[in-house]
Nucleic acid binder design. Structure first.
Length: 591
RNA sequence: CGGGAUGUGGCGCAAUUUGGUAGCGCACCUGUUUUGGGUACAGGGGGUUGCAGGUUCAAAUCCUGUCAUCCCGACCA
């Protein structure tokens, strides 16, 4: 039976909802696909459910084809498994927690690694059972600090999460590749534009991780890509270090007074005005070395300062810093931190002090402050810098790395900029925004160890299983597809996810119009097509056309005045093109 | 958590500055009309103005508190 608009539970809206900002959110609400139930929580109406189901089925088919088996866990979970992996605590405020009548702790699952691991442990105990890959399509719950953009970032959302279990690292790599391949097929079938970027493994541990991002200006993730095909999350970009320079022949380090230089720009101006370079060119911000004091807080709550020297023309990127110092929390040092470390002269911090005649290393575990000192990868041996002299209103010029100062290591946390070189030599990077729609991850043995998932190998010895986890944001894909496929009239779904294959509009008041539309709908269905039929009798054609465009089924058939010559119009929603065909040919013509 | 904005029938908004007992459009109901681009006309139902206090003869409007939502940032396998 076709979906009849005369009885479909649907009310389209002429105006944008006031609480919606992004296009996909506005259109999905206006066209009657979803309704807001609570912040970041949405009700699915019949049309929305149809689209969501289509996506789920594509995902399901490709998962099954890749050899994964579907299961279904509860969303309501007990506390214990999450206690074993410490995530009851680690997840913090993002976890929805609740208690039963006996005051026992429960949670609404934000993800299911623990449960899958325990399930395999529950049933399997031999290497002969492996590899195995399980998945589910299920609601997830995360109490986001700020849900936004409708379905794009909800507090309840549907995710396909899959988990692979292997005995060996090679097995894991194969399982990972199989899932990655399946993802490419899924997104291609759905008609989603995507790029695969290297991701930082972060707190999840493990060795390999890639994200599937759908490029979009409203995306929350920044990534970089090069003409040669390199793509990575900003967090994962490795800076290309230049070759070391010769130390011999460099000018000697000299301390100069530098009053009234609160910013890098004022410092550069002063340098050009008072200290000409030996090679004749002008000083630039890239010649300065900015020493940024950061405070790291470990998961146990221990606070430690670290100083990172970065070229003065770049800021520290907070996300890269978080990734580099994970699992520590990173924040700029506070006034209190400076008070506790009088050796740091704010605004004039540098690796070396010249006070008292002979130069003396200040920063670093070997320096007088004993504060760990790390350098940007660009600060290689032989490079010369203007940097703080550890005295008020004094900077030192031509301080050469490898000659005048050393550091404890490298910290690659400076911002990545458009034009920077790709790590693999594939050209200059450009920055772009994307929406994360999938993530594949070699977890390794972290969860298996925490939850004691072991199997006997062929020598009868217990081995810890190695795991991968693979996620696709199903409901987020609905929003991504809506965001990428619309015009000022409404949605334009790709065929694979449209709520129906064909949308038949009965435009007219004569009985023959409705009879013919019904007949056509039946013929489409006999061919295996799903049909939405606008059979509303007292609604004017303009309203029907408007709703057809808003709802966005790509193939529309108009049954109306053309009947006088035995014709109906085939209307391509995407191109806007209409073409008259004989009624009896309509089904065949639409393919 | 920091910054900003907003809470008035189902939806979008006005009335708040200058207190006088709530209005418009859409949607909904009835009738007539219209049927290839959101027809026209007439009639109608629906709101303790987020909540709680306070000021006042009188509060959507002024004061205090509180809650909620949205946006930006922080945060976020």
């Amino acid at each position: 039976m076709p979906i009849r608009l005369s009885s479909l539970f649907l009310r389209t809206l002429r105006e944008d909802p006031a609480d919606a900002e992004v296009t996909s959110h506005k259109l999905l609400v206006r066209a009657g696909y979803i309704r807001r139930a609570a912040p970041g929580v949405y009700t699915w109406l019949p049309l929305g459910l149809a689209v969501k189901s289509k996506i789920e089925n594509v995902v399901r088919e490709e998962m099954n084809a890749a050899g994964a088996q579907e299961v279904f866990f509860p969303a309501l979970l007990p506390r214990e498994p999450f206690e074993a992996t410490n995530r009851w605590t680690e997840y913090g405020d993002n976890l929805f927690r609740l208690q039963d009548r006996k005051k026992a702790d429960y949670l609404l699952a934000p993800t299911h690694e623990e449960m899958f691991t325990l399930l395999v442990k529950d049933l399997y105990s031999s290497y002969k059972d492996l590899p195995v890959c399980l998945y589910q399509i299920q609601n997830k719950y995360r109490d986001e600090a700020r849900p936004r953009a409708g379905l794009l970032r909800g507090r309840e959302f549907v995710m396909k999460d899959a988990y692979s279990f292997d005995l060996t690292d090679e097995g894991l790599a194969a399982s990972y590749q199989a899932q990655r391949d399946a993802y490419e097929r899924i997104f291609t079938r759905l008609g989603v534009d995507y790029v695969i970027v290297k991701a930082d493994a972060g707190a999840m541990g493990g060795s390999a991780s890639e994200e599937f991002l759908s490029p979009s200006p409203i995306g929350e993730d920044t990534f970089v890509r090069s003409p040669g095909g390199y793509a990575a999350n900003v967090e994962a970009v490795k800076t290309v270090a230049p070759a070391a320079l010769a130390i011999e022949g460099q000018p000697a380090a000299m301390v100069h007074p530098s009053p009234n230089t609160p910013t890098i720009a004022t410092l550069v101006d002063l340098a050009n005005a008072s200290v000409p370079r030996a090679d004749g060119r002008q000083w630039t911000a890239a010649d300065t070395l900015k020493n940024v004091v950061l405070a790291l807080t470990s998961p146990e709550g221990k606070r430690e300062l670290v100083i990172v020297g970065v070229p003065g023309d770049r800021e520290v990127d907070a996300k890269r810093a978080e990734a580099a110092f994970s699992p520590n929390e990173v924040e700029p040092a506070t006034e209190a931190d400076f008070e506790k470390n009088p050796g740091l002269v704010k605004g004039y911090i540098g690796p070396v002090s010249f006070a008292g005649g002979s130069p003396k290393q200040v920063l670093g575990l070997e320096g007088s402050t004993k504060i760990r000192y790390l350098l940007d990868p660009r600060v290689v041996n032989g490079t010369a810098w203007i940097t703080g002299a550890n005295e008020d209103q004094k900077h030192v010029f031509d301080l050469v790395k490898g000659r005048d100062f050393e550091a404890d290591g490298i910290a690659d946390i400076a911002e990545v900029r458009a034009g920077d070189a790709a790590p693999d030599g594939s050209g200059a990077l450009e920055l772009a925004r994307g929406i994360e729609i999938g993530h594949v991850f070699q977890l390794g043995r972290k969860y298996a160890e925490a939850l004691d998932l072991k199997v006997l190998d062929d020598n009868g010895k217990l081995q810890v299983v190695t795991m991968g986890s693979y996620g696709i944001g199903v409901t987020r894909l609905v929003a991504v597809l809506a965001e990428a496929n619309n015009d000022d009239k409404g949605l334009i779904w790709p065929e694979a996810v449209a709520p129906a294959d064909v949308y038949v509009v009965a435009a007219g008041k004569d009985e023959i119009v409705y009879e013919t539309a019904e007949k056509l709908a039946a013929e489409f269905e006999a061919k295996g097509k799903t049909v939405i039929l606008d059979d509303r009798q007292k609604v004017s054609p303009g309203v029907k056309f408007g709703d057809a465009e808003l709802i966005g089924v790509p193939k529309i058939v108009i049954v109306g005045r053309g009947l006088e010559t035995g014709e109906v119009d085939l209307w391509d929603r995407r191109s806007g093109e209409r073409r008259a065909v004989k009624v009896e040919n309509a089904v065949a013509e639409l393919g």
